[in-house]
Amino acid sequence: MRLDAFHVVAAAVALLGAAVTIFDLLPINKFAFFAGYVVLQYVVLATAWNIMGGYMGYVNFGTAGFFAVGAYTSVVLYNLMQAPLIVMIPVAGAVCALLGLGMGYLTLRLRGVFFAIATLALAIVLETLVVNWDYVGGATGAYILRAREIAPFGDYVEFLFFVMLLLAIFAVSAARWIERSKIGRGFAAIRDDEVAAECAGVPTLRLKLIATTVSGFLMGVAGAPFVLYVGFVEPSSAFNLVYAVNSIAMPMIGGATTWAGPLIGALLLGSVQQVATVTISSELNLLIVGVLLVFFVIAAPEGIVGLVRKWRGGGR
């Protein structure tokens, strides 16, 4: 892999993250880390969704299901052996990668819309299972005791913020690498015309399974620290539809065919939501997301990235 400006920026962002969380270089109040964590979590989720949805054209309505399985994997690991976060993240990722693989294997031989409907079903089946599973707290939820402070970060939330920042950088880099690789070109061919892609030599089923697996992995990874962040997890919060809506709306608004789209969409929409939940009601906030989503898919199908390109290209 060749290094370019992207990697320099990514490294700089990581270093800056370390500087503000470990050395408290800038006077940032605690709420900013708290809100920033959520925004970064959406960067991971939107990027993960986009690998299936944007690159390949397969809509996943079940982001919340994958996210929650990641979160509940952490609960199980904590209950079993008080596992640390460094263990939770890869295991949650692996569990969700397997879930994605299985899901893909069952439904991807069918038309794309069936995959979409199946993902919707999956989220609710999983939620029902968790509600009925007492080991992880059932419908009432589960607590996790976390340290208030952790060295060398000080406040635990700052630590979680830094972890999520690294995960976001990892997710975006992975998406960018995929997009520019042979695999990414294969994804694009599948999105444009699956039969033609197959007849051009593209192993479509294998590529689709790669996509569900990678996408599932990243969603699980995003969910893993969730329990530590909130300290208490219940089915209705982990399986919240908001994750599904945002992970679709953010790439669609940002621009779904490139890695920059979900990143821009998540940073923009995520930040606005964090500010808006404080200032206006959270329902109105969600309504705005829904309206924006519908508006963008109708009026700006290439999202913000497409608008910028068109504006720069002087209308090609």
Binding site: R185, A189, D193, A196, C199
Partner: peptide, 28 residues
């Protein structure tokens, strides 16, 4: 074995040359 389609199925998001890149990379 190669085939063409009765109703053309180009990879619409790509240029003409990029269309060929897919079979060149994946089949040849």
């Amino acid at each position: 074995i190669a085939r063409s389609f009765q109703i053309p199925k180009p990879f619409r998001s790509m240029t003409v040359l990029e269309n060929l890149a897919i079979p060149l990379e994946y089949a040849s």
